[in-house]
Design a protein around this nucleic acid. Structure first.
Lengths: 230, 230
DNA sequence: TTGCAATTCAAACAGTTGTATGAAACTATC
DNA sequence: GATAGTTTCATACAACTGTTTGAATTGCAA
C-alpha cells in the first residue's frame, strides 16, 4: 500500500485553487506548485485533469446526496412511510444550502468549491450532474406518497422550483447581497432554508382545497431537524 | 463608411458556434472559418475575443431588458403609476422566458446563445451581468409602489426567487424534460410564465392578511399581455 | 488618375496547455 | 542485501491559443 500523501495533496491543492480562482484559469502547473509535487503526478494518480476535477466533484456531491437521503429517510420513518411535504423539501434543499452558505462556511474550501462548480459548468462536472436524475426521482417518489392527489407534472414543477431557488441562492448570493444592500441576510441559513421550503410548499399545494392545504405543516415549525440528526 | 459585411459575418458565425458548442471549445479559428473571413479580422473589428463575446451578449440582453421595461411601463401606466404585482413580475420574467423557450425558439440561434450564456459563465459575460443590478432596481422600485406595506427584504427575496425560477427553467429545460419524462411541457411558454409569476406572487404575498391577499389578481387572468403589446 | 485611408490577408509570434517518456529514487518483500 | 514494484522526477513533446505584423488589396475622394 502506497502512501497517498501525494494524491491527497493534489486533491487539496486543486480544490483550494479551483475554489479561489475558478476552473477557467487554474492549470495543472498551478496545482502541482501549490501541492509541492511533480507535474507528472497528476496524470499518474488521476489519469487526466478532467478525472481529477470529476473526483473532486463526485466526492462533494456524494456527501450532499447522502445527507439528503438520510434526512428523507428519517422524515419518512417519523411519518410512518409518508413524510410531510415540507419535510421532504427540507431534506432536498437543506443539505446543499447548509453546505454552501452561512458564516462558518465562508472559509470552507469545500463550500467555495461547490459554489464554483455551481457557477462555472465545465464538461466533467456537467457529465456527473446529468447522472443526478436517479437521485432526484427518489424525492419525486416521496412527494407522490406525501401528496397522493397531485398530478405528477405538478410534483416535477415543485421539485424543479425548489432546486431553482436553492441553486440560484448559492450561485448569486453575492449579487443578492449587493442588490439588497445587505438587507437580505445570507448568513442565516436556517431562515433561508425555511423560506425556500415554504415557497416550494406553496407552489406544490396551490389550488388545493383549503382543507387539504391546512393539513400541511408550515416549514418554520420543522426547524428541529438540523445537522445534528444526520 | 465601411461595408461591415465582415463584422456582421463574424458576429453571426460566433453566435451560431457558441450556441451550438458552448464557449469552452470554440476558437477564433473556428469562427473565422465559419464566417469565411481572415483570422486577423476579429482583432481588427472587435479588439479581442472577449470583446466579441461581450458585444454578442450585450446586444441580446439589451433587447431583453428593453422588452422588460416596455412591459413594466405599460403596466404602470394602466395602473395609474402603480402596477399590480403580478404584472410587474410578468414584465420581469416574461421576456427572458419567451426569448429562450418555446417550439419556435428551438432553431433560434439567439435563443440558444442566451441559454449557453446562462449555463456557462465566462468572464466577459459575468462582467456584464454584474452591471445588471441597476436594471433590477427599477423592478424593486415598482414592487415597492405595488406593495407599499412589505419590507424591502421581502421584495428582494421575491425578485430573487422569480429570477431563480426563470433562469433555472432556461438552464435546465433539457433536464426537467428528461426527469419528468415529458410530463412538464416546456413548449407552452405562456403557461410557464404564468406558473413562475403565480409562485412569485405567492412568495411575495405570503403572510399578508387575507383581505390584502385577495386583492392580488391571479397571474392567469393576466395572459392578455403578450409580445404583441411590445 | 492619383493619393489616402480603411480593410484584408498570409504568416509568424510568443506563450501556454495537458500529456508522455524514461530514468532515478524509493519501499517493501524475500 | 538483492529484487520487483511503485512512485517521483526533470524534461520534452506536440498541439493549440489569442494576438501582432507588415505587406497587399480595396474603395473612395479629389
Amino acid at each position: 500500500m502506497s502512501s497517498d500523501r501525494t494524491r491527497s495533496a493534489i486533491l487539496a491543492a486543486a480544490e483550494k485553487l479551483y475554489a479561489d480562482r475558478g476552473f477557467g484559469d487554474v492549470t495543472l502547473r498551478d496545482i502541482v506548485a501549490e501541492a509541492n509535487v511533480n507535474l507528472a503526478a497528476v496524470n499518474y494518480h488521476f489519469g487526466s485533469k478532467d478525472e481529477l476535477i470529476a473526483e473532486l466533484f463526485v466526492t462533494r456531491s456524494l456527501a450532499t446526496n447522502r445527507e439528503r437521503l438520510n434526512e428523507l429517510k428519517l422524515a419518512e420513518e417519523q411519518g410512518g412511510g409518508r413524510a410531510p411535504i415540507d419535510a421532504i423539501l427540507h431534506a432536498l434543499v437543506g443539505p446543499p444550502l447548509r453546505g454552501c452558505l452561512g458564516p462558518d462556511r465562508e472559509g470552507s474550501t469545500a463550500a467555495r468549491f461547490m459554489i464554483r462548480a455551481s457557477i462555472e459548468s465545465v464538461p466533467p462536472i456537467r457529465r456527473i450532474k446529468n447522472r443526478e436524475v436517479d437521485h432526484l426521482r427518489k424525492f419525486i417518489a416521496a412527494m407522490r406518497r406525501s401528496l397522493p392527489g397531485r398530478d405528477d407534472a405538478e410534483l416535477y414543477w415543485g421539485l424543479h422550483f425548489a432546486l431553482a431557488m436553492t441553486h440560484h441562492t448559492i450561485r448569486e448570493k453575492e449579487r443578492l447581497t449587493k442588490l439588497s444592500e445587505g438587507q437580505c441576510d445570507l448568513n442565516d441559513v436556517d431562515a433561508i432554508v425555511d423560506r425556500v421550503v415554504s415557497v416550494s410548499v406553496m407552489a406544490l399545494t396551490a389550488g388545493q382545497t383549503p382543507a387539504k392545504k391546512a393539513s400541511v405543516r408550515p416549514a418554520a415549525v420543522h426547524g428541529r431537524l438540523t445537522r445534528q440528526d444526520l
